Amino acid sequence: MTFNPEKLLVTYRPPATKSMPAEGRKYTLTHSDATGELFLGIGTSYDKGSINPKLRDEFLAEWQPRLGQFLLSGNVYISSGEFDENISRVRYMVFKKEIPTALEAIIHGDRVFFQHFPWLVDSPIYVTFESVFPEFNKVMYYGTPRQYMGGKKKMNV
């Protein structure tokens, strides 16, 4: 999927604003298969009400302090056993392919935040894939927010 900013709907969930907080800032990204719209909730907690418990196809991310710097820690759910290995493999491959688009949506949707915290554009992004199957249970590096700004993805993951 190619990111289309016109199909992104952003909601700030108080007490979060366009500029605060940095630590603990959480993103919940969901989508509509029917319309192609992306829904980004930005808050101090995840927007659990927007998550479809049967599909579990959301992307979650949070700014976390680590060793004197911030990192953007993402998370996708593959399987806790309710999906067999073949379905889990498909879910893993789809998520792996779509993570750059999800990151582009988050970075674009929260672009005012980066004007207040410009040093965060060079923070590392790590995404955890959660699965009971070891081959899909891993943490992967996805570059920095700078690589997802301006509609140009500069790395292949």
Rank of each mutant, 00 (worst) to 15 (best):
T2M: 11
F3A: 04
F3K: 08
F3P: 00
F3W: 11
K7R: 07
K7D: 13
L8A: 07
V10H: 01
P14I: 05
P15N: 02
A16M: 07
S19V: 14
M20F: 15
P21C: 12
G24A: 11
L29H: 02
T30P: 06
T30R: 01
H31W: 14
A34R: 09
T35Q: 07
E37H: 08
E37I: 05
E37R: 13
L40M: 00
S45R: 01
Y46E: 00
D47N: 01
D47G: 02
K48R: 15
I51D: 05
P53G: 01
D57N: 13
E58F: 12
F59M: 04
W63C: 02
W63S: 01
Q64S: 12
P65G: 10
L67K: 08
Q69D: 15
F70I: 07
L72A: 06
L72H: 01
S73N: 09
S73F: 05
I78T: 13
E85V: 14
N86F: 12
N86W: 14
I87K: 12
V90K: 14
R91N: 10
M93S: 04
V94T: 06
F95E: 06
F95Y: 11
K97R: 06
E98L: 03
I99M: 03
A102E: 04
L103R: 01
A105W: 06
I107D: 08
I107E: 11
D110P: 03
F117G: 07
F117M: 08
F117Q: 05
L120C: 07
I125T: 05
E130G: 07
F133A: 11
E135F: 07
F136K: 06
N137H: 04
V139A: 07
Y141E: 13
Y142A: 02
Y142I: 05
T144A: 05
R146I: 11
Q147Y: 12
Q147T: 13
Q147K: 06
G151A: 06
K152N: 01
K153M: 09
N156A: 06
N156I: 14
V157F: 12
